[in-house]
Design a protein around this nucleic acid. Structure first.
Lengths: 223, 223, 223, 223
DNA sequence: GATGAATGAGTATTCATTCAT
DNA sequence: AATGAATGAATACTCATTCAT
C-alpha cells in the first residue's frame, strides 16, 4: 500500500534498517560479553536504544537474533569469497589464489574472533538455519567455481568433493586458530593450510610426496 | 584416571559411579532429543532414575552435566589415540599410522554423530573447560609423541606446531563429515585427509607438489 | 437513537457511524472466534479495516468495545420488546401477548446464540455498565407497561415485582435454552415459560394449581 | 511408591490439600476484589502464602484456578441438592419440597454473592468445563430423582424436560436476585419461584389458571 | 481526522537449586 | 546419603495505548 515503485528507501524503510542494524550490533556485543544465557531481549533492546516491542517487530524471538547474526556473518563470508573467486585471471596460480583466500579469511576471522567464537558455540536449536547451508552448499559452490578455473592444475577433477574439502579444511583450521590462539605465526599457518590443500587437490592419491618407508602395503588395520 | 581394571570399589563407590553413569547417559539422550534449552536437571534426574538432589550431589550445576559429557567424550578420544600411538613399531609407516588414526576416529565419530553434533554446538559458557584443553594440549601432545616416532619422515621437525595442525586437521574434517554427511565415501575422505596431513608434515614448504605456474612471486594481496 | 430512516447525515457523521459499526462487527466476530483473551484491539482494528488510532477515537479502551456490543444488543432487545408492548390492543389476551413476547425473543436469541454466549461470559470488569441496567430497569419498565395493560388479569398487581420477575424468567430460560441446547422443542419451551409466568402473575399465592398433599404446614426447614 | 494403603492422609497429602485450599481461597478473594484481569498468579500465590512454583505444581495455569473455583462451587451445589433430594419421605408435598430447595439455595447464594457474581461472568475460555456440565446434566438428574418421587403430583411426567426447566428456573431467578438485589423480599421471591415451578410441573398446558380473554386463537404472530 | 510505528509496563510460566525430612 | 517438595528469581513475549507525522 505504500510501496509505489519504492523510488529510494522511504524514511520508514531506512528507519527499519537502522533499527535492525542497531539491534544486531547490540546482540553481538552482549552475546560476546555475557554469552548465550546472559543475553536477553530486554537488555538487547535497551542497548540498541529501542523498545522491546520494536525488537519483536523485527525478530520473532530471542534465537532469531542469533540466527540473524549468523546470517549476517554468512553473507559477509560469501561476499568475501566471491570477491576472491572473481580475481581469477589476475592471480598467477592456484597456489597463489588459495593463499589469497586463506590470508583474507584469516584477517577477517582475527577481527571477529570474539563473535565467531560465540556464534560457533551457540547454534543448539538453530542448526540447519539457512546460514548453515553456507558451508554445505553455497561456499563449496563458490570454491568449485574457483577450482574450475584452475582445473588443469588439479590432479583429479572431482570438483564437488574437492571443493567441499577445501572449504572445510580452510575454515576449520582458521577457526581453530583464532579460537585456540596456539603459538603459531599467521604466516606459518597460512603456508601450512595452503600446502595441505594443494596436496589434497594436486597430488596423486596414495603416492604422496615423500614416502620414506614402504607404502605399497595398504593400510589394513582394524577399526 | 580410568584404571582399566577398576579392581573392585567399595559398594558405595560403585553405586556413585553407576549413578554418575546413569545421569550422563540420561543427559546425553535428552540433549540429543531436545537440545540444550530442552534439557533440564529435573528431567535428567527423572530419566536417570535418581532424585534431583542426588544429581546435585555429583554435578554442581546444569552446565556441568554437559561439561562432563565433553569430558567423557574427551577421555574416550584420548584413550583411542593413545592406543593408536602405542602401535608405533607395529605399523609400517607414518602414512599407515595416520591412516589407522583417521580410520579409527572416523568409525568412532560415525557412531556418536548425534551426540557430537549437539556437544559441538553447546559450549557457550563452557568454553575453556578442561575438556577443551584436550585439543589444545592433551591430544596434540599425544600426536607429538606419535610424530616423534616418525621424525625421520618429517620435513621440518617443529613438532608442537605439526602436532597441533595434524590434530585439528583430522578432527575438523571428520566432524564436518559426520555432521554434514556430504556425498563422499569414507574411503575417499580418509585418503584425502591423510594425504593433506602428509603434505603438511613431509613436504618442503613453498615448493608444493605440482606448481603449474609461476610461484616465485609471492602473494602480495591486500589483507 | 435509531431513527429508522437516518435521513442522511453529513458525510462525516455517516463515516463515523460506519466506522463504529465496522469496529463492532469486527469485535463481535473476533470475540466469538477467539474469546475475550484472544481479542485484541489491533486485531479488531485490522479486521475492521481501520487503524488502531481511529479505533481509539471512538472507544476509550478495549473493554469499551465489549461494553458497546452489550449496549447494541441491549438496544435491540429493548426495541423488540417495545414493539411487542405496543401491540397491546391487538393481541387478545395476556397469555397471547406473553406468547408473542417469548416467541419473538427466542427467535432473536437463536440467531445470535454465538455472540450471546460470549457476551454472557464476559462482563467481569464491565458489570454495572449502562447496558446492565437494562434488565434492572429499562426492560422491567417496558414489561410493567405491558402488564399494566392487562392489569385486570393479574392476581396481585405489584407491578414492579411482577415485571422484574417476568423479565428475568423469560430471559433466563431463553438464554439457558440457546446456550445449552437441551432436547426440548421450541414450542414446548415457549409453552412452559408462558405457563410459568402466567402462574406467577395470575395465580393466588400459596394456593397453587393442584396441591396434592397437605400444604397447610409451611416449610419449616433450616436456612 | 509412598502410598502404602494410605492409612490416613499422609502428611504430604494433607499438606497438598491445605495448599490447594489456601490457593483457592486466595484466588476467590482476589478475583472478588480485583476481577479477572486484576488476578495474577504471583499475587494469588503470595496471598496464599505459597510460592508461585508451588501454585503451578497444582494448577497448570491461571485459568485453571478459576475453573477449580467453579468446580468447588459446583460440588457444593450438587451436595446441597442431593441432601435435599434425600429428604423425600420427610417433606409433606412437592410444593414443600421445592420450597425447601429454593430456600436453601437462596441462603447459599446470598452468602456467596460476591464470588458467584464474578464466577458467573468469568468463563470465557473456560466454557464447557466439567463444572458446566452440572447444570446440563448432574443437577437436572438430581432433580429428576426428586420429581420422580412426586410423580403422582405432576401433570405430565416428561421428567427430563421438567427437571431441566425446574433446575434452570430456580437457578436463574436466584442468580438474578442476588446479583441485581431488586427490592423484593426473599419470602416473596421464594413463593413466586415455587409457584411458577409448580405451574410448570402440575398445570395442564394451554389451560392456565385464570384465562381472562379468549385463548382459543393460538398465537399466530410473526417473529 | 487518520495512521500505525513505537512504546514498555505487565505477567504467566519455567527450572535451577536448596534443604528439611 | 537420598529424596523431591518447595522456592522464587529470572525472562520471553504481549498488547493496550500513545503521538508524531
Amino acid at each position: 500500500m505504500k510501496r509505489v515503485h519504492t523510488p529510494r528507501k522511504t524514511p520508514t524503510q531506512a528507519r527499519s534498517r537502522m533499527m535492525v542494524e542497531a539491534i544486531l550490533t547490540a546482540t553481538a556485543s552482549i552475546i560476546v560479553k555475557y554469552g548465550y544465557k546472559g543475553t536477553n531481549t530486554n537488555l538487547v533492546a535497551q542497548l540498541a536504544g529501542v523498545s522491546v516491542g520494536s525488537l519483536y517487530q523485527y525478530f520473532p524471538n530471542k534465537d532469531s537474533l542469533i540466527a540473524a547474526l549468523h546470517q549476517r556473518e554468512a553473507h559477509n563470508l560469501a561476499e568475501m569469497i566471491r570477491n576472491i573467486t572473481e580475481q581469477y585471471p589476475k592471480v598467477g596460480s592456484l597456489h597463489e589464489h588459495l593463499s589469497l583466500l586463506v590470508k583474507t579469511l584469516l584477517d577477517h576471522y582475527r577481527q571477529e574472533t570474539q563473535l565467531l567464537r560465540v556464534l560457533e558455540k551457540n547454534f543448539s536449536e538453530l542448526i540447519d538455519l539457512p546460514s548453515e547451508q553456507l558451508y554445505k552448499t553455497e561456499i563449496p559452490v563458490l570454491l568449485q567455481t574457483m577450482l574450475k578455473s584452475w582445473q588443469d592444475s588439479l590432479w583429479r577433477p572431482n570438483l564437488p568433493v574437492a571443493a567441499w574439502m577445501t572449504a572445510h579444511m580452510i575454515r576449520s583450521m582458521l577457526h581453530a586458530y583464532v579460537v585456540e590462539t596456539p603459538e603459531i605465526s599467521p604466516r606459518d599457518l597460512e603456508q601450512a593450510i595452503v600446502r595441505s590443500v594443494m596436496a589434497l587437490l594436486c597430488a596423486a592419491p596414495e603416492q604422496s610426496v615423500s614416502v620414506p618407508h614402504d607404502l605399497s602395503r595398504h593400510s589394513s588395520m582394524a577399526s
